[in-house]
């Protein structure tokens, strides 16, 4: 057994060395188009543009960032179909496009139709309420919902809406779930009193620090960084989570050397908080998280399966 492990380690070490040397060799054969699955402006778009800028200065490549927003990243994933596989076309989106976005089949794609490259960070997803409501914990929220009117709750993506629904179902309360446009739209609606609560993915951090918003639940599989005591979804009996990664992916059958080189160079940039991109991730998301290779593939395969279960559970 020990020998087998050692062999495995040796093999693993070898394969890392092999991809590393493969990566060293790769340079793009021409100018690169980097799609960004978000509308221009805002933190997610800046993230992509800053990474592109840093790649250009570090390696002297020519990169043109291009916004390809829509349908939580699915429009960009479709753009990848039939794109050149030599590493000159790839894009930054969210993992939800690959799991939930493709799970019900209407997209006509599966995660196998793209090549995952590397994640940049895990979105800090929290269930947030305005501080003016006076709710300090999720229990307060549930108590208020039981006592009065059904709660008006926002959701920025369909996956989040499903999880919100299951959370309410588990707590035995009624919620009117409303789709809102992005983190900004959610915050505006919360501040204006049009909504009572909702899951937000990072845009709320400043409001929490200023004491205007309160985080009640962590949507991630780990505790929140600003409110570590808030319960996880699993603690509330919801067997799903909202681990949404910002991640790069390319077209199907992308050149392995390109994939390795991009994964390596992008993770170096995002993990280095002296770069503008790294600093932005530190400020907005509490730091970068670069997962690539088999670990990333495994995450995507698992969350694709889980997304199908989520859809099933939420439609019952």
């Amino acid at each position: 057994m020990k020998k087998f492990l050692a062999l495995g380690a040796l093999a693993l070490g070898y394969s890392i060395a092999a991809t590393a040397s493969l990566a060293e060799d790769w340079t793009p054969p021409g100018p690169i188009t980097m799609h960004i699955a978000f509308p221009p402006g805002g933190g997610s778009d800046s993230q992509g543009r800053l990474i592109a800028e840093e790649l250009e200065t570090r390696y002297g490549w020519t990169i043109t960032p291009q916004n390809t927003p829509g349908k939580a990243g699915l429009i960009m994933a479709k753009e990848m179909q039939g794109a050149p596989t030599d590493g000159t076309v790839f894009g930054l989106g969210i993992s939800e496009a690959l799991d939930y976005g493709m799970a019900d089949g209407t997209a006509g794609m599966t995660p196998d139709d793209v090549t995952p490259i590397v994640t940049t960070t895990l979105a800090e997803v929290a269930f947030v309420v305005p501080a003016s409501k006076g709710w300090k914990t999720f229990d307060d929220f549930v108590a208020a919902a039981m006592a009065g009117e059904p709660m008006r709750v926002g959701a920025i993506t369909p996956k989040i809406a499903d999880v919100t629904y299951l959370m309410g179902k588990e707590a035995g309360i009624e919620m009117n779930i409303t789709m809102v446009q992005g983190g900004r739209g959610m915050l505006n609606a919360l501040y204006a009193g049009d909504l009572d609560a909702g899951f937000v993915a990072g845009a709320h951090s400043r409001g929490v620090e200023a004491g205007e918003l309160v985080e009640l639940v962590s949507g991630m599989s780990r505790p929140l960084s600003l409110t570590p005591d808030a319960p996880l979804l699993a603690d509330l009996g919801v067997p799903f989570n909202l681990d949404i990664y910002f991640m790069y992916f390319g077209p199907k059958d992308m050149d392995g050397a390109a994939q390795a080189k991009l994964a390596q160079s992008i993770s170096e940039i995002v993990l280095d908080d002296t770069t503008k991109a790294g600093a932005l991730l530190e400020a907005n998301f509490g730091g970068a998280e670069a997962i690539s290779g088999e670990a990333l593939q495994a995450f995507i395969d698992a969350s694709f399966v889980s997304a199908k279960d989520l859809m099933q559970a939420a439609s019952e």
């Binding site: 054969p29 021409g30 100018p31 020519t62 050149p84 000159t88």
Partner: peptide, 8 residues
Amino acid sequence: TEYRLLRE
């Protein structure tokens, strides 16, 4: 070659 690679 391809136009794509020469476009810049």
